[in-house]
Design a protein around this nucleic acid. Sequence first.
DNA 1: CCAAAAGTGTTTAGTTTACACCCATGC
DNA 2: GCATGGGTGTAAACTAAACACTTTTGG
Lengths: 258, 258
Amino acid sequence: MQSEAELIDFIKNGYKTYFPQVTIDCVIFGYHDQQLKVLLARYPWINGWGLPGGFIKIEETLSQASVRILKERTSLDDIFLQQFHTFGDDEDRLAHWHLKYFPHDYKEMFGADNWLLKRTISIGYYALVEFSKVELTPDFFHDEFEWHNVTDLPELLFDHNEIIEKALATMRVQIYHQPIGYKLLADKFTLPEIHMLYETILNKKLDRRNFPNKLMALGILVKLEEKRKIGQHRAPFLYEFNKEKYEEALKKDVVIVF
Amino acid sequence: MQSEAELIDFIKNGYKTYFPQVTIDCVIFGYHDQQLKVLLARYPWINGWGLPGGFIKIEETLSQASVRILKERTSLDDIFLQQFHTFGDDEDRLAHWHLKYFPHDYKEMFGADNWLLKRTISIGYYALVEFSKVELTPDFFHDEFEWHNVTDLPELLFDHNEIIEKALATMRVQIYHQPIGYKLLADKFTLPEIHMLYETILNKKLDRRNFPNKLMALGILVKLEEKRKIGQHRAPFLYEFNKEKYEEALKKDVVIVF
DNA sequence: CCAAAAGTGTTTAGTTTACACCCATGC
DNA sequence: GCATGGGTGTAAACTAAACACTTTTGG
């Protein structure tokens, strides 16, 4: 975590380093306990919960910025990260948004025309991450984190609820075109596990016997010799995915029917 | 067209009215002569061709800005307009891009730290318009227009070639999910006309007998009693589309198979 | 031996594709 | 009457969907 001197420097001089009035907001989906979760962060300045996000550096591409921001928060790289929409319609984000959110002493601290108080446009990226691999790192803008079920979200800052809705909708369309779901599982997994994952994501029942066929036909799923011990029941086989076939399928636009 | 005083005021004081360093670029598709066309504009300052675009006003939402910009150039409103991607990866657009494009006298005219010379991020919208209804209006940033076949584009400024590619790809996916193609035709059209339109957009042959079935099944197409006179051949029936069913289909996400 | 979860194929229904002949019009 | 393009239906192939019983395991 940075020092207070760094924070003050960021507030005063950040405009020299960062692209103005554009932020990246990350909708980070993880899967745990048979629930699709999204990562929320507490913004201590504003005293509310929202999506983790960050600024783009002046000398950095958008893609670089999105990867950096995700890595700074979660320690992950090599994750599935996808730009899905740019948000600039929220009335609260137009001029004077800070009157709604900021306590007055921050305004005085910043100065009324500080770069951080201007209207922002937000570029939305969604990420699929394996829940267990995430190591959360707070900073001045995010002092706490919580994973919430996508079906049970509190009211968030700005238009972040709407952003999550759009991310979910985009992801649910995209999962029919590309086998992105794997990114939410550990490297080795069982058919019942991936089956439940897809049921959770799409929020509907999928036939247990028909489900693996398309993925098998694409050659993406590889059956291993090992089995997983799961207590007193029959041990299911483990699977992994064929990385070459997977990358191929990501590039193509195959329609996957479950 | 604006006066030169207005231009100078824009250069000097535009930063007071417009959101900084973010532009909207419009990929405007039209259909004519059985060709899918895209509207290009000449940028007189830079002496090159690119996509028509504009700035967002500080007190205006993104959606409002996109509609306004499209209307200012084409005189159209009530068009199909869709945000598809935000571009910020082009190396040329990072710092010092203007060194590549601007003649030096403009730099002197502007001042080296003028707001117009900074790195920009561009939000891409694509529009489908009926070619014949477009009335083109130049301004200081667009002094000439040309419709080009999407299959035959010159080299454009910045990353505009890439932006068009992405718009095309997005539109071709979307047209399988929503019957957006109608926006490219006159209100009344024949089956052969819409058939050729779809063949052109998707760049592949579609069976003449199977093609209208899905659209008919959705109730979107309405056969009229009238026919069109087409010279020395059999007169084809005219069709229009059922506006309610069309709007319905736009909201749903029906997969349309041709 | 019983409860709980895993594993596996076949039949049916639906959807998509392929395909060819007759009709209308103007010259 | 002929050349050109418009209009129409059916059969075959394929794909998706529905469905139930057997196996493994630990207690």
